[in-house]
Computed example of a mutant assay.
Amino acid sequence: MTELKTRRPTGAVPWPLVLVEGGEKAGKSWSIAELSASPRVGRTLWLDLGEGAGDEYGAIPGARYELIEHDGTWSSIMGQVSAARDEAQRALDAGEKPVVLAIDSMTAEWGLLKDWVDAKARRRDVNRKALAQDPDVEVEITNDLWNLATARHKDLMRILMRFPGIVIMAARGADQVAMENGQPTKIRTWKVEGQKALAFDATAWVRMSRTEHPRIIGARSVHAGIVPGEDKPRVIPDLKLDALIFDILKCDPAKAHVRDLVSTPDLAAVLALLAEVNDRDSYTVVWELARDADLLDSPVDDATLRDAMYVQRDKVLAAEAKATESVTA
């Protein structure tokens, strides 16, 4: 029988993962530059994905962020985000002020992944033939491809949700016509443009506007003063991210911790284990590990981890058949 293991809650505020969204020219990127000027934060690392404000906003008085360089590929982006995480951990271990990682924007991140699966869909034989006959034909992105895009997004979010510092995710938001069963309705609703789980994963959600004061839409917080189901979004004139993080959310760098999420292996770890598989039992162990970590549909070269698993399985079965033949010969 498994022994029950419990502990008392600490009451400490975890490192914040803040979603800052709003319409065009609402000040989302500006707020990131302002945060970098705060004496309460250390290095601010700005990952510019398609927004283009990073260079110009360096002229804002007091701004002291650094732009992360990447070549636009997913592997380059993920490599730099991982490096930023490692720098944040180094600063934390050294007793320095917390590192800020800003991604501008998560709308562009999801757009990058959508373009990737669209290109994959267009390369499929059935679609390539259809496009040859009619270049304007609508290409369907099937669920297996959307699963690939979601898997990549989850790989990024695993790092952001366990980042040992402050993460700001900018995203576009807009008032849109609500859809029902694929058809437009007369109802209008506000929508964050990005992967659908983006707002759920954030610990705090701020909406900015060109014509109204910033408002805290929601926060997973004891201190923010917003009770789900009871309180309306909290409007705060001239809200700054510095005040949100340290004064409203009460993040104390001396006590903050990464969110207590279930520890799961990353794709690289599973691939390393897969390379060592040489029998059915070890194959089953790695398969279950990958399945439980929701990694089976993660991209590996031009295929998925699931495909790589099948290749390794076939090698194991072929080796077993060969060994059987040797014994019976």
Rank of each mutant, 00 (worst) to 15 (best):
A219D: 04
L289C: 04
D297Y: 03
D247N: 05
P214R: 08
N278V: 11
K240N: 02
E288S: 12
I217G: 02
L289A: 01
F246C: 11
D201G: 10
P184W: 03
S209E: 01
A272L: 10
V286W: 05
H213L: 03
L249R: 00
Y310P: 00
D242S: 11
V270L: 02
L267K: 15
R234P: 08
L241D: 02
P233H: 07
D281P: 06
V222H: 13
G218N: 08
S263N: 11
L244Q: 00
D292F: 08
T264I: 13
T189W: 00
V311F: 10
L271C: 11
V270N: 02
Y283L: 15
R234D: 08
D297I: 01
L198V: 02
Q195G: 09
D247P: 04
R220H: 11
T203V: 09
T304L: 05
A197L: 03
S282C: 11
W190E: 08
R280F: 12
D242I: 00
A303R: 14
K232C: 07
V192C: 08
V227N: 13
Q312S: 02
L198F: 07
V285K: 15
R306I: 01
I236L: 11
D247T: 01
I216K: 02
D247F: 06
N181P: 01
K250P: 02
D307P: 07
V258G: 12
L274S: 13
E288M: 11
A256F: 03
D281Y: 05
A243N: 09
P299F: 10
V270T: 03
L305G: 09
P184L: 07
V286N: 01
Q183P: 00
D281G: 10
V300E: 02
K191P: 06
V222E: 13
V235W: 11
H257A: 06
D252T: 13
W190K: 10
V285Q: 14
L267T: 14
D279N: 15
D297C: 02
V222F: 13
A243Y: 02
I248A: 04
S298C: 12
G229E: 12
S263W: 07
V285R: 15
D252S: 09
P233K: 07
R188W: 08
R291H: 07
P237K: 08
R215I: 07
R220Q: 13
A199P: 01
E212P: 03
N278S: 13
I216D: 00
A202I: 00
A197S: 12
D231G: 01
D292C: 04
D242E: 07
V300R: 06
L249M: 04
Q183V: 06
D294Y: 11
E276I: 10
L249V: 08
R207A: 05
R280V: 14
D266G: 12
V311Q: 14
A308E: 04
G218T: 01
R220K: 15
D252K: 14
A256N: 05
T211N: 05
V227D: 11
V277Q: 08
I217F: 04
A204V: 04
